[in-house]
Design a protein around this nucleic acid. Structure first.
Lengths: 230, 230
DNA sequence: GCAAAAGTGTTAACTTTACACCCATGT
DNA sequence: ACATGGGTGTAAAGTTAACACTTTTGC
């Protein structure tokens, strides 16, 4: 098999781990590869970096082609550089991760390579192409560290959310259950949430108030050295 | 000037930020470049990665050539991939950092490119070649985050050290003064230090006990999920 | 009226901080 | 004898953790 594959030269790619939250679960966006190598395997979306393209730019390009989203905050995760990680040549890959908000109307892929993209439960990934299981594992680790110290929970939810939904995000990512009263005290105590004059509709129980996250205030406080800390 | 430089093709390098502690100060190892581009500028030591070399391996090779040290723990820091960061071609660089223990007999460089390596105060770096100031800044940031959560202070000191020396390391890295009694309570409370039956010699004041860090015990506890936290 | 999730305070345990004096050694 | 850093404990303040019942809504 390897003999029929064309050789690349030394090159670099980006891979984008995209986190989402749905059905009470943390998810990762995967694609079905339709080219060798690893044809028909599932994989983390990625692409080679063009010669005249910043790697950060390549990462946002891949994300845009996959989801139609622009201006998403992406953070560099780690660079994977084992000699034999790519069967066709020396390709090191710079992995990024991002967190995207679930919207009502779903994703709008801009490119054919994304035709078979879908959400997969982050804690139960299948066997992936290349060293992508390692990449996903590292991204999960990083997300779990990060949520303790930055308010990323909000970015996985719609703009308006209930406190219970937010609590579920935290529980899904950390894997630990949290006391409802203590959670609310802390999260409201940070003074970064605004209670709306609106409640959930159409639920078969007492309707919860909706809240929004005050991103501007957070950024201001963060620049003053405040640390979030849940 | 640019016209006289030979063109590289797309490639990758590693750069190694090496931290040390001396004269009560955090230091970084710098070299004087003796080749274009940036000839005679100071720089963070680095090298191209060979085609058949893992990037982690390249990082330890550079460190070995520079210092003669093997088996030093190095951690990947960040990958810098702006298109124009290298004037001779597209070279992305994977930065690593490491922490080395001050020894009595100094460094033993293994390669000529290191002839002019020396320690420079980390908080007062000169203007460096390429984007190396950015790299150093990121490494410092990372070290400051890391010391709050892993016992790296010990790795900057000789195997046997006094509690005051250790406190100075923490203060130099975090930039904040610490209460002596509280510092000692915490650090001894972690139960990772062993007091030796030895004291400092030749100091013009009451001699302090020497301690060693119990690395094995730390690794065991860490694997059980313990977090250090100073 | 019942099932399901929303909302709400208090107390005890623990952690963190602030703080000052005597001791040992070399000159 | 003096200058220098070494070594030591306590109490107040603040933070975290544990815990259970009433309310609202849709069916």
């Amino acid at each position: 098999m390897a003999a029929t594959l064309k050789k690349l030269h030394s090159d670099f790619s980006v891979d984008c781990v995209v986190f989402g939250f749905d059905e009470g679960e943390l998810k990762i966006l995967l694609i079905d590869r339709n080219e060798a190598p690893f044809k028909e395997w599932k994989a983390i979306p990625g692409n080679l970096v063009a010669k005249s393209e910043d790697i950060d730019h390549a990462a946002s390009r891949v994300l845009y082609e996959l989801t139609g989203l622009k201006d998403v905050y992406q953070e560099q995760l780690y660079t994977f550089g084992k000699v034999n990680r790519h069967p066709q040549g020396r390709v090191i890959t710079v992995a990024y991760y991002s967190i995207i908000r679930r919207t009502e109307d779903g994703l709008h892929p801009m490119s054919s390579f994304a035709r078979e993209a879908y959400w997969w439960p982050a804690n139960d990934l299948p066997k992936l192409a290349f060293d992508h299981n390692e990449i996903a594992e590292k991204a999960l680790q990083r997300l779990r560290e990060k949520i303790l110290v930055e308010p990323i929970g909000f970015e996985l939810l719609p703009k308006e959310f209930t406190l219970t939904q937010l609590q579920h995000v935290y529980e899904a990512i950390t894997g630990e259950d949290v006391d409802k009263r203590n959670f609310r005290k802390r999260i409201l105590g940070s003074d970064l949430l605004k209670q709306l004059n609106k409640k959930q509709a159409g639920v078969a129980h007492r309707a919860a108030y909706l809240y929004t996250f005050n991103e501007k205030k957070y950024k201001k406080l963060k620049n003053q050295g405040m640390i979030f800390g849940i």
